[in-house]
Amino acid sequence: MDFGPYLLLASLEGAVTAAVLALTAVGLSLVFGVMRVVNVAHGEFFMLGAVLAWWVAHLVGDAHPAVGFLLALVVAPLLVGGIAVLADVTVLKRVNYDPERTIVATIGILYILQQVTLMTYGPDARPVEPPFNTRLALPFVEWGENGLQLYWPWGLSTTSYKLAVIGAAVVVLLGVWGLMARTRIGLLMRATQLDRDMALAFGIPVERVYAMVFGIGAGLAALAAVLIVPIQQAHYLMGGDPLLLSFIVVIIGGLGSLPGTVLAAVLIGLSDGIISVFFSPTLAKILATLLVALVLVFRPQGLFGVRRA
């Protein structure tokens, strides 16, 4: 294959990563924005989503794979959201969302979720069948005898499922935007984000808003995991990478800014896909983590954020 088709293939893979990453990171960003809380256990909510998706698909059994998958798409985020709300009420609320103690507590929650999964689900990686998976060959242009013409390079293809993942992520992100901008619940969340005490004074049930935001954030991570699990497999340690990448995205995009987060997810997802194809994935990760640390040191408002007065 020539360089051009290679690049197209890498970008397509990167776009799938970016779609899933955007969902996960928006969840993390929502929690940070509204609650001012860094949720280190976010990656484990992602992992739980994938594991529950396998579990649901396994329970449904012999029916068409689409039945189990669609059921998982509904059940996993709801269950994970429920677990997150429970964690919020029993732990985070009781330490008063103090930033440092919350980080320590969520590290504890991380290990609890991860190790309980290890004890029940086991150390194996297990696949979930995608609901549909047609291979689509893609054309590319080249300079032929009669000027520009289409041709079909060998190996340049994607699957219908991967395109569907990208589409689903766009739909969900638009839904989150609608929720935040157009509904009463979104209004309450934004009010709480702007000024917690003032919101409390106006009778907004801030604690319930917090519990809901934490649940929605975890639910988004779980949803992203259900979407990716037919491509990757469900494993109890799979939460590490999404957590790191989500952190990177949220910081580059500006802490707590949703549009910045989505933009950064696309940027990081695409460049991660492209760099990993052409260079060593480890080197790509080293550069990305260093970049994040330096962005936090020298531009704490993020690359796209606006410095607050």
């Binding site: 732990v91 330490v95 103690r101 320590v104 507590a105 590290i107 504890g108 929650i109 991380l110 290990y111 609890i112 991860q114 190790q115 309980v116 290890l118 004890m119």
Partner: peptide
Amino acid sequence: AYMLIAGVVLVALT
């Protein structure tokens, strides 16, 4: 799954 103990201790301590 011995890290479970570490997790529980961390949460209990905070």
